[in-house]
Each structure stands twice: as C-alpha cells, then as structure tokens.
C-alpha cells in the first residue's frame, strides 16, 4: 500500500492474495483457497491493473501520498492495537490450540449439496446481484455519446 508505482501495488496485491489463498488451503478450506486464486488473483487483480492502465493516460504518475498521512496511519494503528489487544487478552481465544478433526474430502463433497439445498435462496439472490452488477458496471463504464448527456 505504500508503493508509489500503482502497477507495483497491484502486483503486490496479487502476491499477497496468493499467500492468503495458501493460508486458506492450510486451514483445510481447499475449495475456498482455489476460489480465492481464481476470483481474486485471476479476475480482480487483472481488473485493477486494467483500471490503472486505463486511468493513467494524461496524469503524471500518480500515487504520491499528497495528503498528510498521519491521521490515517494513527487510526489504522489504533484499530490494530485494539484488535490485537482483544485477541491476546481473550482467554477463550488463546486457549483454543487444537481443532476438531475434519475429513477434507467431506467438505468439498458437501459444499455443492448444501449450496443447492440449504442455501438455495442466497444462491439465487447472489446470481441476481452478480448479473445486476455486471450490467451496471458495463453501463457505467460505457462511453457516453455526445447527444446523451
């Protein structure tokens, strides 16, 4: 987040998302790990790189930290301190070191079944949302013709 070159920022984002996907794999959430790689590394970071390249045209290489960053950094540091303090102080959280055993193949097998049985309404709503977002994004990003405005 502190790099000056925007494209470097986007590529670092991709790298950190890959690392996060590996953590998901380590947490026995294989499906989510691969989804993360497909959706974030494959789609979102490419989208971000495209947006950066599309909006860079006339501008001098932007991304300098022009605004005095101290207030934002202090707020973020305070948030981290609060969260970390809460997690470390909480006995209930630090006492949990093991986890219940879990058959990994069970997870992947049952995701599909749950998705169409128990969670079918959220699934439909999500499809609707994605369609609406896709159409909306295309319409927003379309070139406006002269007479339309």
């Amino acid at each position: 987040m502190s790099l000056r070159n925007l494209v470097h920022s986007a590529l670092c984002l991709a790298v950190s998302l890959v690392g996060l996907a590996l953590i998901y794999l380590g947490l026995d959430a294989e499906f989510i790990g691969w989804i993360q790689i497909l959706v974030y590394v494959g789609a979102v970071s490419i989208l971000i790189v495209f947006a950066i390249l599309l909006t860079r045209g006339t501008e001098a290489p932007a991304g300098r930290i022009t605004f005095a960053p101290w207030s934002g950094l202090i707020i973020a540091g305070a948030v981290f301190a609060t969260l970390a303090w809460t997690v470390i102080k909480s006995k209930a959280l630090t006492e949990i070191t093991g986890n219940p055993s879990l058959d990994v193949s069970f997870v992947v097998k049952n995701i599909g079944g749950k998705l169409v049985a128990e969670y079918v309404l959220p699934l439909q709503v999500m499809g609707l949302l994605l369609t609406a977002a896709l159409i909306g994004a295309v319409i927003i990003a379309l070139h406006e013709r002269k007479g339309l405005k």
Partner: peptide
C-alpha cells in the same frame, strides 16, 4: 491485514488504491 487495508483506504488518495 485489516489494519493495512484500512491505512491504505485512509491514506492513499488514488481511487483505485
């Protein structure tokens, strides 16, 4: 991760960032 994201959203002035 959350704090880094928050700092980025608050400090950086570029919309994409």
């Amino acid at each position: 991760l959350f704090s880094v994201g928050l700092a980025g959203a608050l400090v950086r002035r570029h919309a994409i960032l």
